[in-house]
């Protein structure tokens, strides 16, 4: 990996994730670069989404899930007992696989997160700015009072991104953000990710290897270990992973020989 002295946006060390008694992901050590796009790929069930959710403690919402090891964010382990997961999620936002706008107006969808986070500034400006950043402004500026659910799937997903960036997080986690969208909408999301990477650190889980190759700076390949727990098989600059993988399994996966 890069040898610069950049401090990382977030890093996992010896991270083990469990569902109940079952070990789902084992021994993850991973450093995420600031303002870069890091893609997580791998076969189904290898725990990449679980790792993604571990970065903002979304797994807490599953009663049986728990973690050992640490996830360092600004030098602080977010799994420390004195850490409030709500505060973590305010700084590390999330975009989900299926667009999930609130059944509220487009305006309120964007404003809501900022509101509950105590945003004091001009809400109209924030909403416009966020929608512009999400490349949605032109399409919705005349119908901000319409329900967010009235938009198309691709628009809904960009609305969800707008909603996330309105909170001004450091890091945006994206869990297969384009998998439910058609190719054109997918491309728009990918373009948007490039734009967003100028300002935010982005970690994206994807099933689509071309997508990982197109958008990401770094790629992490996850695989199922012998004990059926997910492991981080290989993690490198995207071009290395796709052109010169160090491991045989990575190469097999990339070339479509399994998974």
């Amino acid at each position: 990996m890069t040898e610069n002295k950049i401090t990382y946006a977030i890093e996992a060390a010896d991270l083990n994730l469990y569902y109940g008694e079952t070990l789902a992901v084992r021994d993850i050590d991973m450093q995420i670069e600031k303002q870069k796009i890091t893609a997580m790929i791998g076969p189904s069930g290898c725990g990449k989404s679980t790792v993604l959710r571990a970065f903002n403690r979304m797994n807490d919402l599953i009663p049986s899930a728990h973690a050992t090891g640490s996830v360092l964010y600004h030098g602080k382990d977010i799994y420390d007992e004195d850490v409030d997961p709500v505060e973590v999620r305010r700084r590390i936002g999330m975009v989900f696989q299926k667009p999930n706008p609130f059944p509220k107006s487009i305006f309120d969808n964007v404003a809501w997160g900022a509101q509950i986070n105590g945003y004091q500034g001009n809400m109209d400006e924030l909403v416009e700015e966020s929608l512009r950043d999400a490349a949605l402004w032109d399409e919705v500026k005349d119908k901000l009072d319409k329900s967010g659910l009235s938009l198309s799937g691709g628009q809904q997903q960009r609305l969800c991104i707008a909603r996330t960036i309105a909170v001004k997080p450091d890091i945006i986690l994206m869990d297969e953000p384009a998998s439910a969208l058609d190719p054109i909408a997918t491309l728009k999301i990918e373009d948007l990710m490039h734009e967003l990477a100028k300002e935010f650190t982005i970690i994206v889980v994807t099933h689509n290897m071309q997508q990982a190759a197109r958008v990401s700076d770094f790629t992490a390949f996850f695989n199922l270990g012998e004990d059926h727990a997910g492991v981080l098989e290989e993690y490198d600059v995207t071009s290395n992973i796709f052109t010169n993988p160090k491991k045989k399994t990575t190469e097999d996966y990339i070339t479509g020989r399994f998974g």
């Binding site: 919402l61 999330m94 999930n100 706008p101 909170v167």
Partner: peptide, 21 residues
């Protein structure tokens, strides 16, 4: 469930999620 997840993902507390979403 996704709506709750969306709210939590924005840094909403349990109460905010329950009452406002």
């Amino acid at each position: 469930r996704a709506l709750r997840a969306a709210a939590y993902g924005l840094g909403a507390t349990k109460l905010e999620t329950a009452v406002k979403v």
